[in-house]
Design a protein around this nucleic acid. Structure first.
Length: 361
DNA sequence: AAAACGGGGAA
DNA sequence: TTCCCAGTTTT
């Protein structure tokens, strides 16, 4: 079923000089592109890793992670054979940890079913865990020179201005509209530089605020610029604000060890490690010793409140009150928890919120 | 169609 | 503060 109406796309593209637009964009990109570690070659595996890391993440943040990751897992096989904990450790601090777990799941499938070669077939590629419409298009165009759209936030911002499209880019179906438009204007000769050029333009020139229109290589093609509407585009509905959850967290220790536990394999921060936590609404300070005895089998002495940590996620806020506790007696009975030597804490992947706790301890 | 899913940096 | 970032999966 064709969701996006063809007439709608044609309307946006009336009088649009595709060849000139392509030429201006590609020549600008070839001249001005940044030297980035994943641009040294077009190894489909490296393109893939970089595209996953770059999801909702700035280039400057990704660079050191990418270099370390590729050094540690240079090939599809190396990543497929690694321990998941090792992969999560390499991803620690980057966020959206399901990206790392999905990537490894997908890479294992590539080794098992596709002779360790990243699939070139669009449907096969899409079937891989963590490879959605954007990543599929990015890998196909950048690694394999296939003229497929790769529509991300940059592309929607740039093209919403160039074609003066005022649909809400927060809506799912709007991405499909942009894909239909890109299919019409993408360079068949050089889809890689075309797609990367759109994204690079969005990152360097056609920025969300105060875009540098005077430096723009496609200014003459930009409907929003001609009509003085650049600042009004793209249209994006706002998301509602986060809910705050308050927790107690406990640094439970003896002379040399600390109690940590692994989070569930589903949901927020899946499979990462943390100090035991309980929501404030589910207990109170008077009952915490009892709660720890019940859940972990340890008798503890309540120590000082170390600190209060506020950690902001995209969809919620954690307010964590951290307490120190000393183990008096007992053995850990909770299977997902264990006492580990303080010096070995850095072997485990922790979310940033709990890395803050480690720092203060 | 909407919500879940991290973390950092810019304005 | 608010918004944004080379999005995908689950509900």
């Amino acid at each position: 079923m064709k969701v996006v109406k063809r007439e709608q796309v044609n309307e946006y593209l009336t009088g649009f000089d595709r060849l000139s637009f392509q030429k201006n964009l590609i020549e600008w990109f070839e001249t001005e592109k940044r030297n980035l570690p994943w641009r040294l070659d077009n190894d489909p595996y490296k393109v893939w890793v970089s595209e996953i890391m770059l999801q909702q993440t700035k280039v400057d943040t990704v660079i050191p992670y990418f270099n370390r990751f590729i050094k540690k897992f240079p090939t599809v096989e190396a990543l497929a054979e690694a321990e998941e904990q090792e992969v999560l450790k390499a991803w620690e601090g980057l966020g959206y940890y399901s990206r790392a777990r999905n990537l490894q799941t997908a890479v294992k499938e590539v080794v098992a079913n596709y002779g360790s070669r990243v699939p070139k077939d669009p449907n096969t590629l899409s079937s891989l865990k963590g490879v959605g419409p954007y990543t599929k298009g990015a890998i196909l165009s950048i690694a394999y020179d296939v003229p497929e759209p790769a529509v991300d936030g940059n592309v929607m911002r740039v093209m919403s201005r160039v074609l003066k499209i005022d649909e809400d880019i927060a809506k799912q179906k709007t991405r499909k509209l942009f894909e239909s438009c890109i299919k019409e204007v993408i360079s068949q000769a050089n889809p890689s530089s075309f797609n990367q050029g759109l994204m690079e333009l969005g990152a360097l020139i056609c920025t969300p605020k105060s875009p540098s229109c005077s430096l723009c290589p496609v200014q003459e093609h930009c409907a929003a610029y001609q009509q003085g509407m650049v600042e009004q585009l793209p249209v994006k509905s706002k998301n509602k604000k986060q809910k705050t959850l308050t927790y107690f967290a406990f640094v439970i220790h003896d002379k040399s060890n600390v109690l940590i536990e692994q989070r569930p394999e589903q949901g927020l921060l899946a499979n990462l490690w943390q100090f035991p936590m309980v929501e404030l609404s589910k207990t109170d300070l008077e009952h915490t010793q009892n709660w720890i005895k019940q859940n972990y089998g340890l008798t503890v002495k309540l120590g000082n409140e170390l600190s209060s940590i506020k950690h902001v996620f995209s969809h919620l806020i954690w307010d964590i009150r951290v307490f120190q506790m000393e183990v008096i007696d007992g053995a850990v009975k909770e299977p997902n928890a264990k006492m580990v030597a303080k010096e070995r804490l850095n072997q485990y992947p922790f979310p940033v919120s709990h890395q803050k706790i480690i720092q203060q301890f």
